[in-house]
Computed example of a mutant assay.
Amino acid sequence: MSGVNLHLNEKDPVQQNRAIRDLFAGRSNAAGTVTLTANTTTTAVNALNCSAGSKVFLFPRTANAAAVVASTYVATVASGTFTITHPSNANADKNFFCVCLG
């Protein structure tokens, strides 16, 4: 789900109103999905809306993701990216929903 991307100098009230309606409907560019990299212990995620002070939340989408959730965490958050630390195994379908706020 993504919302309307407004330019910083947007003057069109129709576009501004649409962006506000999208936010009220729960749409934003803060949500996405990530698949943990198999056979390694870290996965880097590009997230344009993240900054160093952002909070990242992960929610398992698949059974293999749920199986590693207790030992999976967001290790670092920086401008435009975050890194997840997780167990290394061959499962290629460790899929998570992610939300980056702040």
Rank of each mutant, 00 (worst) to 15 (best):
A52V: 12
A31L: 10
N29Q: 15
V77T: 11
N89W: 09
F59H: 02
T76F: 05
T33H: 02
I84Y: 03
V56H: 00
A38T: 04
T72L: 01
S88V: 01
A38H: 06
A66I: 03
S54K: 06
Y73M: 08
K55R: 12
S79V: 13
A70Q: 05
A75K: 15
N39P: 07
A30Y: 03
N64S: 10
A78Q: 14
A63K: 09
N46I: 14
T85H: 13
S88I: 02
N89S: 09
A90F: 11
Y73P: 04
N29H: 15
V68Y: 06
K55W: 00
K55E: 04
A52G: 10
H86N: 09
N89D: 15
F57T: 13
A63N: 13
N49M: 13
N91S: 15
T81A: 14
T42P: 03
A30I: 10
F57G: 00
S51K: 13
T85M: 07
S54I: 08
S54A: 12
L36W: 02
S54D: 08
F57I: 11
G32D: 09
T72H: 02
V45R: 02
Y73R: 08
T62F: 04
N49L: 14
N39T: 09
S88N: 09
P87G: 06
T76P: 08
A63W: 13
V69K: 11
K55Y: 02
V69E: 11
G32N: 15
N91C: 07
A63T: 14
F57M: 07
T37A: 12
N39W: 09
H86Q: 06
R61F: 01
N91T: 09
R61H: 08
T33W: 01
F82M: 05
G53W: 03
A63D: 08
V56C: 02
G80N: 03
V45Q: 04
K55M: 04
T62I: 10
N39S: 14
L48Q: 15
V74M: 00
A66Q: 10
L58G: 01
S71W: 03
F59M: 08
F82G: 04
N64E: 14
K55A: 12
G53I: 08
A31S: 15
V74S: 00
A47W: 01
F59P: 00
A47T: 13
T83H: 07
V56Q: 00
S54W: 03
L58D: 01
P87N: 09
V45A: 01
N89T: 06
S51P: 05
T43S: 11
A75N: 12
F59A: 03
H86T: 06
V56E: 04
A63S: 11
N64W: 05
T35M: 00
V34H: 01
T72A: 05
Y73E: 12
A78P: 10
N29M: 10
N49H: 14
T83G: 09
N29F: 05
R61M: 06
